[in-house]
Amino acid sequence: MRKRGINPFIIFISRKIGFSLATYFIFLTIIFLVPRVIPGNPLATLLAKLYRQAQANPELIRESYRRLMEEFGVGRPLWEQYVDFVCRTFRGDLGTSISSYPCKVAEIIAMNLPWSLGLLIPALLISWTIGNLMGAWAAYRRQTAVDNVLLTVFIVLSQSPYYWLAMLLLYLFAVRMTLFPVGGTYSVGLIPTFSLRFIADYLQHLALPLFSIVLGALGGWAIGMRVLMIYEIESDYIVFSRTLGLPDKKLLSYAFRSSILPQVTGLATSFGTILGGSLITELVFNYQGMGMVLFRALLSLDYPLIQGIYVILALTFVLATMIVDFVYALIDPRIRTGYVGG
C-alpha cells in the first residue's frame, strides 16, 4: 500500500544523488591532497629537473615550467590552491600535460576514455550476467560434483589478475593460433567511423581484452551468487513452498529474484576494482585507453596528467554508482511500490 507524502522512490534517488555528489567532492579532496601531503614532494623534484633543462635549452621548457608552477599553485597557501583546483575542475580545465606539452589534459583524456569504456562496460555486463547464472546453477547443484568443480573454477578465476589471463589468451589465441590480432585498438590505417568495416575490425581487436576481463571477473560474481542462493534456498519460505509441492523451477526463480538484488548493488562496489584491472589489461594489448595514458603518465612523472586522469576516473566511478542506484530503485519492489521499512 502506498503511503501518503513524497514518493519514496524520489526520496531514495535524491538521497543517493546527494551522497554521490558528496563522495565526488571527497574524492577530489583526496586527489588534491595526496600529492601535497606526501613528504619528499616529487613535484619539487620535477620542477628542479625542468629548471635544469631550461638552462640548457628552449623556452618551451621554461614555458611548461611556468605553467606547472601556475597550475599547481606552487608557493600559494593550500586552501587557495584547493579552491582554485576545484573551480578549474568544474570548468573542465584539467591543466596542461608535461610529457606531451602543450596538449591539454582534457583533450588527451577525451581521446582515450571512450575506448576504455567500450571495453569496460560490455565486459562488466557480460561477466555479471554469466557469473550470476553460473553461480545460481552451482548453488542449485550444491553438494554434487558439478558444484565442487564449478566452485574450484570460480575461485581460481576470481584470483587470476585480468592482465595475466590476458597474457595467456594473447599468447594462445593470437601468437600461437593467430586467430586474433596481437594487440592495438584497430588496424593501422583505419579511421574510426561508424562504418561496418571499422566496427568489425574493432570488435576483432576488442575480443581478447574483453574475454580476459569477463573471465577474470565472472568468478567473483559467481561465488557471491552461489552463497546468496544457498542461503535463499534454505530459507523458510522456499522450504515451505517446496512442501506445498511447487516445482523446482518456480522455487529457483523466486530465490534467484531475491538473490539478484544484492548483486546489483555489487555492481557499484566492484566497478572500481574491475576498472582498475581493466586499465592494466589495456597495457597487455596496447589497447588505446586510459590505462595506456595512465601508464605513460606514471612513467614520465606527468603529474598534471595523472591528476586529470584521476579526476575523470573518479567522475566515471561516481556516475556508475548513481546509475546502479537508479536501476536498483527501479527493480527493487520495496522501493518501487513505496514500502518504507517494517
Binding site: 583526496i30 595526496v34 606526501i38 619528499g40 616529487p42 623534484t45 576498472l275 595523472i306 584521476y310 566511478f317
Partner: peptide
Amino acid sequence: MFPSILLMILIAAYVK
C-alpha cells in the same frame, strides 16, 4: 567507495 587499487597507484606515484 574509492577503488583501493586506484588509491594505491595514486599514492605510489608520488613516492620516488
